[in-house]
Design a protein around this nucleic acid. Structure first.
Lengths: 127, 127
DNA sequence: CTGTATCCCGCCTGATACTG
DNA sequence: CAGTATCAGGCGGGATACAG
C-alpha cells in the first residue's frame, strides 16, 4: 500500500516517542509518577478528570514500553503500585523540561494567539 | 458542566504545549524548519506523506501560536516561505532533545514491548 | 480498591478533486 | 505553486455500569 503512515514512519523514528506524549494523559501520569510511586486510585484522583478506562489504557501502554512498573500487592483490598522505571524517569526529565518551557512561554503564546485571532477578525474573508 | 476536559485544563497548563506536539506532524514540521526556512512545496515533499490540507492546518496553527512566520512573496508563481520564530526555535530544542532520547532508547523500548507481548501471549486469559 | 465491558461521539487525519 | 473544498474513516477519548 505504502500509505502516508508508512512513509511517515520511515521518515521519523521519533514517532514512537511522540506517540508517547501525543495523547492527552500519559505526560500527566508520568509527571505524577515522577514525584513518587502511586496507586491506581491516587492517580485517578490526582490526574483529575481521567476515567478509569483511559487511565488503565495509559498505564498498560506505559508498562508495555518499559517506562513504568506495575506491582500488585495481594492484600485483602487489592492494591497496585505504579512506579517509574529508570527509563521512565529519564524521559520524565524531558517532559518536565517541555512543561517548564510552556510555563515560561505560555503568555507569549497566548498573546500570539490573541493577536492572530484579532487580525483574522479585523480582515475576514467575505462569505 | 465541569467536564473532564475542564478539570484537565485546570490541572495541567502544559496542555497547550502537549497539544502542540500531540499531533502527528507538527513536530516533524518544526524539525524541518529548524534546519532552515522552507517553502510550502518543500515541506510537502520533505515531510513525506503529509497531505496539503493537513500541512496547511499545522502551519496555520503554528503561525497562530507564534512559533513560525509566514511570508508571502508576490511573485508570479506565488511563493510562501515559512520560518521558525525565536519562540519556535526555542521549543524545537526540546523536541530535538526528545527525538534524541528516542534514538538513544528506542531499542530498549522495543525490547520491553517484545518482552511484554511475549509475556501476554504466554499467559493469555481464557476467553 | 482496581479494574473491565459497552456504547457513543468527536476530532484528527486522509484521499481526491478543484481553484487563484 | 499554494492552497481550499468536500467527504469519509479510524482511533482515541468519554460516560456509565458492572465485576473480582
Amino acid at each position: 500500500m505504502d500509505t502516508a503512515w508508512d512513509v511517515y514512519l520511515r521518515a521519523c523514528p521519533c514517532r514512537d516517542v511522540l506517540d508517547l506524549v501525543a495523547n492527552k494523559w500519559t505526560a500527566l501520569v508520568i509527571g505524577r509518577l515522577a514525584v513518587r510511586p502511586h496507586r491506581f486510585g491516587e492517580l485517578r484522583r490526582e490526574v483529575a478528570g481521567i476515567t478509569p478506562k483511559v487511565l488503565t489504557q495509559n498505564l498498560r501502554s506505559l508498562e508495555r514500553d518499559g517506562l513504568i512498573t506495575r506491582k500488585v500487592y495481594p492484600t485483602t483490598p487489592p492494591s497496585v503500585e505504579y512506579a517509574l522505571t529508570p527509563l521512565g524517569a529519564s524521559i520524565s526529565t524531558h517532559l518536565i523540561a517541555l512543561n517548564n518551557w510552556t510555563s515560561a512561554n505560555f503568555d507569549e503564546i497566548r498573546q500570539a494567539r490573541q493577536a492572530y485571532d484579532a487580525a483574522q477578525e479585523a480582515a475576514p474573508q467575505p462569505v
